[in-house]
Design a protein around this nucleic acid. Structure first.
Lengths: 236, 236
DNA sequence: GACGAATTGTACCGTGCGGAACAATTTGAG
DNA sequence: CTCAAATTGTTCCGCACGGTACAATTCGTC
């Protein structure tokens, strides 16, 4: 009865994919929480069903693990974005939807946001080195470019509109809302980050970005457009 | 002739304030560049005119040094902001100026931005613990609140305008513009961060934020307001 | 010029942590 | 069954790096 204890302890079943997924999931959380140099490989290993040995076996070194975790974060978030279909909406409404969706989606992607923050601290060196991520983002802006083109063709949007500049503005609000929440609420209090205030902020930036995109002549009564129903993506 | 070499090596003049300033200046750069855990005390010491010993003598430990560096960053940036006087401008123009100034001022405060990024990675724990910083920021938003009140009294601004929410939006664009430059330009190219494009972005957010603040009835011809002369603060 | 407090120099310690060595077990192919 | 390749367990190393001990020098003050 006591004999097989030792044998059991030293026996295992192989399951490479599951092991790698397990490691990556833990690593992502840990890197997102502590940063590249702040995260501890041993801590990651301990939160895993396997050992530190496996991390080095599958990912080589700390940077290799970090890079894969970064790619995982990007992939997850891009998958979420792909679910959004705006092709059959009029351009102004499509843009409003896109902004509201981006705002909501960022709020649900805390780990991704934090990984991007960390990458920026490191001057995006690892991101720039990852061909996978660069490829993924080539298509990330296509949706917005399509909306811009349709809006201009319809005479609704300004003719000098730049999709990348617009994306910059949408990202800025949606990203900052999460990335700077700690300092912002430490200084100005947590009110702005409660549900009701967040809904108001969302309406505010939807409006504000429509004002950027629309021709002055089309700029009447955009107020109502802020009241967009909550994004239909389930929060699981 | 060779005798005093050893004596010289072991002799020095005291200058506590200069030593502390020297250390803080180097530490700020180093922490801003590498993060709290990424920065090396020994590296900081080596870039200093003094030794590692002095860092521990004056600042106790790594976190003490980091906290002081953070406070220094805040103080420097707030001093820069204090130079701006908008009291005798009409509220809409004052707001436009404030936005443009904030955008420009952030661009010149790279170290400050990076320190705030790092604080956010650490959930603002050190910032929240610093009474000095909390006090400094109580007055940081007063300028904007004054503009809002004047704008509402004049019937120009929306009556439900929230100064903190407006500040959030201004900060988001100005902050993101620096904080996420590495990842953004790694993905979409560096064009958006060259002088001409930056001037356009600045005009874009000035407009966009005026659209948030102004009553719809006052929302005509704000286009021109984007063209604000470069901030008069010398870049030294 | 002597004495104590404030500064600074030098040398060192403890250990946390990234990583490697080496051996054992499992699995699939033939 | 055999054997090599893939996967995992165990154990330890090297050293970078935060922090300290102890001594020396400087400086104000009386």
């Amino acid at each position: 009865m006591e004999k097989n204890t030792e044998a059991e302890r030293r026996s295992w079943r192989q399951n490479p994919e599951a092991v790698q997924r397990d490691i990556l999931s833990v690593a992502l959380t840990e890197f997102a929480a502590k940063g590249l140099s702040g995260a501890r490989i041993e801590t990651i290993a301990s939160r895993t069903r396997t050992s530190k040995r496996m991390i080095y076996y599958y990912f080589g070194d700390k940077l290799g693990l970090y890079t894969k975790a970064l790619e995982t974060a990007y992939m997850t978030v891009r998958e979420g974005e792909a679910a959004l279909d705006l092709a059959d909406l009029p351009p102004d409404e499509a843009l409003a939807r896109l902004v509201a969706f981006t705002f909501d989606h960022h709020r649900k992607s805390a780990d991704f946001i934090r990984m991007v923050m960390i990458e920026n601290i490191h001057n995006a060196e690892n991101l720039a080195a990852s061909q996978i991520i660069r490829d993924m983002n080539v298509t990330a802006i296509e949706k917005l470019e399509d909306i811009c083109r349709r809006g201009q063709d319809a005479g609704l949007f300004r003719s000098d509109l730049d999709a990348v500049a617009l994306h910059w503005q949408i990202s800025a609000a949606s990203f900052f809302n999460l990335s700077n929440r700690p300092t912002f609420s430490a200084i100005f209090g947590p009110d702005l980050f409660e549900e009701k205030a967040q809904a108001r902020l969302r309406a505010q930036i939807v409006e504000s970005i429509l004002a950027t995109a629309l021709k002055p002549s089309a700029l009447h009564g955009i107020r109502s457009r802020g009241a967009i129903p909550d994004s239909d993506t389930p929060t699981e």
